[in-house]
Protein backbone atom coordinates (compact mmCIF):
# COMPACT_ATOMS: atom_id res chain seq x y z
CA UNK A 1 0.00 0.00 0.00
CA UNK A 2 2.84 2.36 0.78
CA UNK A 3 4.42 1.83 -2.63
CA UNK A 4 1.05 2.34 -4.31
CA UNK A 5 0.50 5.57 -2.40
CA UNK A 6 4.02 6.69 -3.07
CA UNK A 7 3.56 6.30 -6.83
CA UNK A 8 0.21 8.05 -6.69
CA UNK A 9 1.67 11.08 -4.94
CA UNK A 10 3.94 11.76 -7.87
CA UNK A 11 1.41 10.67 -10.49
CA UNK A 12 -1.18 13.06 -9.08
CA UNK A 13 1.35 15.89 -8.87
CA UNK A 14 2.25 15.56 -12.52
CA UNK A 15 -1.31 15.04 -13.74
CA UNK A 16 -2.79 17.99 -11.87
CA UNK A 17 0.03 20.33 -12.84
CA UNK A 18 -0.16 19.14 -16.45
CA UNK A 19 -3.91 19.73 -16.40
CA UNK A 20 -3.39 23.24 -15.06
CA UNK A 21 -0.70 24.07 -17.62
CA UNK A 22 -2.82 22.80 -20.47
CA UNK A 23 -5.33 25.55 -19.66
CA UNK A 24 -2.81 27.91 -21.25
CA UNK A 25 -2.98 26.22 -24.62
CA UNK A 26 -4.29 28.86 -27.03
CA UNK A 27 -3.97 31.70 -24.52
CA UNK A 28 -0.22 32.20 -24.08
CA UNK A 29 1.42 35.64 -24.12
CA UNK A 30 3.14 34.87 -27.41
CA UNK A 31 2.88 31.93 -29.80
CA UNK A 32 6.35 30.60 -29.00
CA UNK A 33 5.55 30.38 -25.29
CA UNK A 34 2.15 28.84 -25.94
CA UNK A 35 4.01 26.00 -27.61
CA UNK A 36 6.64 25.79 -24.86
CA UNK A 37 4.10 25.54 -22.03
CA UNK A 38 2.19 22.87 -23.90
CA UNK A 39 5.36 20.85 -24.32
CA UNK A 40 5.79 20.85 -20.56
CA UNK A 41 2.15 19.90 -20.04
CA UNK A 42 2.58 16.99 -22.46
CA UNK A 43 5.68 15.79 -20.62
CA UNK A 44 3.96 15.94 -17.25
CA UNK A 45 0.81 14.14 -18.33
CA UNK A 46 3.02 11.55 -20.02
CA UNK A 47 4.83 11.01 -16.73
CA UNK A 48 1.50 10.68 -14.97
CA UNK A 49 0.48 7.94 -17.39
CA UNK A 50 3.62 5.89 -16.78
CA UNK A 51 3.17 6.22 -13.05
CA UNK A 52 -0.54 5.39 -13.05
CA UNK A 53 0.11 2.35 -15.19
CA UNK A 54 2.66 1.14 -12.69
CA UNK A 55 0.34 1.94 -9.78
CA UNK A 56 -2.43 -0.21 -11.26
CA UNK A 57 0.04 -3.07 -11.56
CA UNK A 58 1.05 -2.71 -7.94
CA UNK A 59 -2.57 -2.45 -6.89
CA UNK A 60 -3.44 -5.58 -8.85
CA UNK A 61 -7.19 -4.97 -9.01
CA UNK A 62 -7.42 -4.74 -12.79
CA UNK A 63 -8.00 -1.01 -12.80
CA UNK A 64 -6.61 1.17 -15.58
CA UNK A 65 -4.69 4.44 -15.67
CA UNK A 66 -7.95 6.18 -16.56
CA UNK A 67 -9.76 4.67 -13.59
CA UNK A 68 -7.17 6.24 -11.35
CA UNK A 69 -7.23 9.61 -13.07
CA UNK A 70 -10.96 9.93 -13.66
CA UNK A 71 -12.75 7.89 -11.01
CA UNK A 72 -11.17 8.97 -7.74
CA UNK A 73 -12.51 11.87 -5.72
CA UNK A 74 -10.72 14.73 -3.99
CA UNK A 75 -9.78 12.86 -0.82
CA UNK A 76 -8.07 10.14 -2.85
CA UNK A 77 -5.80 12.54 -4.71
CA UNK A 78 -2.38 12.78 -3.13
CA UNK A 79 -0.86 15.71 -4.97
CA UNK A 80 0.61 18.57 -3.01
CA UNK A 81 -1.56 21.67 -2.85
CA UNK A 82 0.94 23.76 -4.81
CA UNK A 83 0.16 22.13 -8.14
CA UNK A 84 -3.60 22.65 -7.91
CA UNK A 85 -3.32 26.42 -7.38
CA UNK A 86 -4.83 28.57 -10.10
CA UNK A 87 -2.79 29.69 -13.11
CA UNK A 88 -3.18 33.39 -12.33
CA UNK A 89 -1.08 35.45 -14.72
CA UNK A 90 1.91 34.12 -16.65
CA UNK A 91 4.17 35.03 -13.71
CA UNK A 92 2.08 33.07 -11.20
CA UNK A 93 2.14 30.04 -13.46
CA UNK A 94 5.90 30.27 -13.89
CA UNK A 95 6.56 30.67 -10.16
CA UNK A 96 4.41 27.62 -9.42
CA UNK A 97 6.21 25.78 -12.19
CA UNK A 98 9.63 26.84 -10.98
CA UNK A 99 8.96 25.67 -7.40
CA UNK A 100 7.76 22.31 -8.64
CA UNK A 101 10.36 21.87 -11.41
CA UNK A 102 13.28 22.33 -9.03
CA UNK A 103 11.76 19.75 -6.71
CA UNK A 104 10.91 17.41 -9.56
CA UNK A 105 14.42 17.62 -10.98
CA UNK A 106 16.05 16.57 -7.72
CA UNK A 107 13.32 14.06 -7.00
CA UNK A 108 13.86 12.14 -10.24
CA UNK A 109 17.61 12.47 -9.97
CA UNK A 110 17.50 10.71 -6.63
CA UNK A 111 14.81 8.26 -7.72
CA UNK A 112 17.11 6.97 -10.46
CA UNK A 113 18.83 5.02 -7.69
CA UNK A 114 15.64 3.48 -6.40
CA UNK A 115 15.72 -0.22 -5.61
CA UNK A 116 12.47 -0.43 -7.52
CA UNK A 117 13.55 -0.92 -11.13
CA UNK A 118 10.35 0.37 -12.70
CA UNK A 119 10.48 3.58 -10.71
CA UNK A 120 14.16 3.98 -11.49
CA UNK A 121 13.44 3.58 -15.20
CA UNK A 122 10.60 6.11 -15.09
CA UNK A 123 12.95 8.48 -13.27
CA UNK A 124 15.68 8.17 -15.90
CA UNK A 125 13.26 8.98 -18.69
CA UNK A 126 11.48 11.77 -16.84
CA UNK A 127 14.68 13.41 -15.67
CA UNK A 128 15.57 14.33 -19.24
CA UNK A 129 12.28 16.16 -19.61
CA UNK A 130 12.44 17.82 -16.24
CA UNK A 131 16.02 18.99 -16.74
CA UNK A 132 14.68 21.13 -19.55
CA UNK A 133 11.62 22.26 -17.56
CA UNK A 134 13.63 23.50 -14.64
CA UNK A 135 16.03 25.34 -16.88
CA UNK A 136 13.11 26.92 -18.71
CA UNK A 137 11.24 28.06 -15.61
CA UNK A 138 14.45 29.28 -13.88
CA UNK A 139 15.20 31.48 -16.85
CA UNK A 140 11.73 32.91 -16.90
CA UNK A 141 11.88 33.76 -13.19
CA UNK A 142 15.13 35.62 -13.83
CA UNK A 143 13.78 37.34 -16.91
CA UNK A 144 10.58 38.49 -15.24
CA UNK A 145 12.16 39.22 -11.86
CA UNK A 146 14.89 41.31 -13.42
CA UNK A 147 12.78 42.66 -16.29
CA UNK A 148 10.58 45.71 -15.82
CA UNK A 149 9.27 47.22 -12.62
CA UNK A 150 5.86 45.75 -13.40
CA UNK A 151 7.13 42.24 -14.08
CA UNK A 152 9.27 42.34 -10.95
CA UNK A 153 6.28 43.20 -8.80
CA UNK A 154 4.14 40.55 -10.41
CA UNK A 155 6.68 37.81 -9.81
CA UNK A 156 7.44 38.96 -6.29
CA UNK A 157 3.71 38.94 -5.56
CA UNK A 158 3.32 35.42 -6.92
CA UNK A 159 6.31 34.22 -4.89
CA UNK A 160 4.80 35.72 -1.74
CA UNK A 161 1.44 34.11 -2.41
CA UNK A 162 2.71 30.65 -3.32
CA UNK A 163 5.51 30.35 -0.79
CA UNK A 164 3.27 28.80 1.87
CA UNK A 165 2.59 25.87 -0.48
CA UNK A 166 6.26 24.94 -0.83
CA UNK A 167 6.76 23.52 2.67
CA UNK A 168 4.68 20.49 1.86
CA UNK A 169 7.14 19.35 -0.79
CA UNK A 170 9.45 18.23 1.99
CA UNK A 171 7.06 17.03 4.69
CA UNK A 172 7.26 13.23 4.55
CA UNK A 173 3.99 11.33 4.36
CA UNK A 174 3.63 7.84 5.75
CA UNK A 175 4.42 6.52 2.27
CA UNK A 176 7.47 8.79 1.91
CA UNK A 177 8.82 7.53 5.21
CA UNK A 178 8.24 3.87 4.47
CA UNK A 179 9.68 4.05 0.96
CA UNK A 180 12.78 5.87 2.15
CA UNK A 181 13.40 3.13 4.68
CA UNK A 182 12.86 0.48 2.02
CA UNK A 183 15.46 2.06 -0.26
CA UNK A 184 12.77 2.76 -2.86
CA UNK A 185 11.95 6.39 -2.13
CA UNK A 186 14.06 9.52 -1.93
CA UNK A 187 15.29 11.48 1.06
CA UNK A 188 13.20 14.66 1.16
CA UNK A 189 15.54 16.24 3.71
CA UNK A 190 18.38 16.16 1.19
CA UNK A 191 16.18 17.43 -1.59
CA UNK A 192 15.02 20.29 0.58
CA UNK A 193 18.58 21.53 0.84
CA UNK A 194 19.22 21.28 -2.89
CA UNK A 195 15.90 22.93 -3.61
CA UNK A 196 16.65 25.81 -1.28
CA UNK A 197 20.08 26.36 -2.83
CA UNK A 198 18.70 26.54 -6.35
CA UNK A 199 15.76 28.73 -5.41
CA UNK A 200 18.03 31.10 -3.50
CA UNK A 201 20.45 31.36 -6.41
CA UNK A 202 17.74 32.01 -8.97
CA UNK A 203 15.99 34.52 -6.73
CA UNK A 204 19.24 36.37 -6.28
CA UNK A 205 19.77 36.67 -10.00
CA UNK A 206 16.12 37.59 -10.45
CA UNK A 207 16.36 40.22 -7.69
CA UNK A 208 13.47 38.49 -5.96
CA UNK A 209 13.26 38.52 -2.19
CA UNK A 210 12.75 35.18 -0.49
CA UNK A 211 9.74 35.41 1.84
CA UNK A 212 10.26 35.27 5.60
CA UNK A 213 9.65 31.93 7.26
CA UNK A 214 5.93 31.63 7.42
CA UNK A 215 3.18 29.15 8.16
CA UNK A 216 3.29 26.36 5.62
CA UNK A 217 0.17 24.62 4.33
CA UNK A 218 0.21 20.86 4.19
CA UNK A 219 -2.01 17.83 3.86
CA UNK A 220 -2.26 17.27 0.10
CA UNK A 221 -0.33 14.02 0.25
CA UNK A 222 -2.89 12.72 2.74
CA UNK A 223 -5.86 13.88 0.68
CA UNK A 224 -6.47 17.30 2.22
CA UNK A 225 -6.83 19.89 -0.52
CA UNK A 226 -7.73 23.46 -1.31
CA UNK A 227 -11.03 24.26 -2.99
CA UNK A 228 -9.39 24.31 -6.41
CA UNK A 229 -9.03 20.56 -6.74
CA UNK A 230 -12.77 19.91 -6.67
CA UNK A 231 -13.27 22.12 -9.69
CA UNK A 232 -10.33 20.64 -11.53
CA UNK A 233 -11.79 17.16 -11.07
CA UNK A 234 -15.34 18.19 -11.93
CA UNK A 235 -14.02 19.50 -15.22
CA UNK A 236 -11.51 16.76 -15.96
CA UNK A 237 -13.70 13.81 -14.96
CA UNK A 238 -16.97 15.01 -16.49
CA UNK A 239 -17.32 12.49 -19.33
CA UNK A 240 -16.20 9.47 -17.33
CA UNK A 241 -18.65 10.38 -14.58
CA UNK A 242 -21.57 11.22 -16.87
CA UNK A 243 -21.26 8.04 -18.96
CA UNK A 244 -19.98 5.31 -16.65
CA UNK A 245 -18.17 2.51 -18.41
CA UNK A 246 -18.20 4.13 -21.86
CA UNK A 247 -15.19 3.72 -24.15
CA UNK A 248 -13.72 6.83 -25.71
Amino acid sequence: MNLYNYILQQADNTLILGQRLSEWCGHGPVLEQDIALTNIALDLIGQARSLYQYATEIEGKGRTEDDLAFLRDVWDFKNIQLVEQANGHFGTTLVRQFFFDVFNFHFYRALQNSKDETLAAIAVKSLKEVTYHHRYSSEWIIRLGDGTEESHQKVQGAVNDLWMFTGELFVPSTADQAMLEAGIGVDLEKIKQLWMEKVTAVFQEATIRKPEDTWMQKGGKEGKHTEHLGFILADMQFLQRAYPGAKW
Partner: peptide, 20 residues
Protein backbone atom coordinates in the same frame (compact mmCIF):
# COMPACT_ATOMS: atom_id res chain seq x y z
CA UNK B 1 -9.40 19.93 -19.86
CA UNK B 2 -12.37 17.57 -20.38
CA UNK B 3 -10.81 14.98 -22.69
CA UNK B 4 -12.24 11.64 -21.55
CA UNK B 5 -9.01 9.63 -21.22
CA UNK B 6 -5.34 10.44 -20.69
CA UNK B 7 -4.51 9.14 -24.15
CA UNK B 8 -7.12 11.43 -25.70
CA UNK B 9 -5.90 14.35 -23.63
CA UNK B 10 -2.35 13.95 -24.92
CA UNK B 11 -3.53 13.54 -28.50
CA UNK B 12 -5.71 16.62 -28.41
CA UNK B 13 -3.13 18.71 -26.61
CA UNK B 14 -0.50 17.77 -29.18
CA UNK B 15 -2.89 18.58 -31.98
CA UNK B 16 -3.85 21.99 -30.71
CA UNK B 17 -0.17 22.68 -30.09
CA UNK B 18 0.54 21.75 -33.70
CA UNK B 19 -1.93 24.41 -34.75
CA UNK B 20 0.05 26.98 -32.79
Amino acid sequence: SRAPTLRRKLGLLAKVQDEA
